[in-house]
């Protein structure tokens, strides 16, 4: 489903070049559950942003569902993001003036769905993340774990193919962190591809496929049952 080949990402800082990704090759099949670990500055977020079409590689090719994405315009990138990709961030990124339900509804509004179609979807997903009774609460009235569940609901309401989570538990205590991870795993069980960037080895180890990055390169890629795949 996702196929990266020789992906490089070079940042120009003053007259210095920072090589954030170095010839990264990666193939992700539909329904996989991956974790990406590695020291700070190893390029995890950069990779995630490229996978999520928020950022474009300096060189290399990226095929999403067989379609080359490095050549298409911003408009189409935005459409693809809206349809195929869900993002979850460390700092939740909920809009403070909107209620939980409204935050969740936002992607559907951007996709120009009719209100009558949107409302049941929002109800359904609120139920799925266990926040039905919090629908009208604003983010500042919710706990961190609840906020992240709202963010997951928002990321998945358009039924994307892949959920990209950049340190989703980074701001949570271990209990609510575990809840959030469990929620994502449940979604993975029903077919969603899940990719989690984390610093927490316990969380990283739960994934069936574990990727380790150092200095912008993938240095280990281990599958469950000992399968090794480089």
């Amino acid at each position: 489903m996702i196929h990266l080949e020789k992906i490089n990402r070079i940042f120009q800082v003053g007259d210095q070049q920072v090589r954030a990704l170095n010839d990264v090759d990666l193939t992700i099949r539909s329904g996989e559950y991956l974790s990406i670990m590695g020291p700070s500055g190893s390029g995890k977020s950069t990779l995630l942003n490229i996978l999520g079409l928020l950022d474009q590689p300096s060189s290399g090719t990226y095929q999403l569902d067989g379609r080359e994405t490095t050549q298409i315009d911003d408009e189409q990138l935005a459409r693809l993001r809206g349809r195929k990709i869900g993002f979850v961030f460390q700092f939740f990124h909920l809009i403070g003036r909107l209620s939980a339900a409204e935050n969740i509804e936002l992607p559907l509004i951007l996709a120009e769905e009719a209100p009558a179609v949107r409302k049941p979807k929002v109800q359904e997903i609120l139920h799925k993340v266990g926040l039905e009774d919090r629908a009208e609460h604003r983010p500042d009235q919710l706990s961190g774990g609840q906020r992240q569940r709202v963010a997951i609901a928002r990321a998945t309401i358009t039924r994307p193919d892949v959920l990209l989570a950049d340190e989703p538990t980074g701001n949570l205590d271990s209990v609510s962190g575990a809840e959030v991870i469990q929620l994502m795993e449940t979604m993975n069980d029903s077919g969603l591809t899940v990719l989690v960037v984390t610093h927490d080895p316990i969380i990283g180890d739960r994934a069936r496929r574990k990727i380790k990055m150092i200095d912008g390169a993938i240095v280990a890629d281990t599958q469950e049952r000992g399968d090794e795949d480089t």
């Binding site: 408009e75 935005a78 993001r81 809206g82 936002l106 992607p107 951007l110 358009t158």
Partner: peptide, 16 residues
């Protein structure tokens, strides 16, 4: 700014 980034991440086009 962060809101704009979020909107784009969840599929908002520049025009929107």
């Amino acid at each position: 700014t962060a809101e704009v980034g979020l909107l784009k991440a969840i599929g908002a086009r520049s025009r929107q």
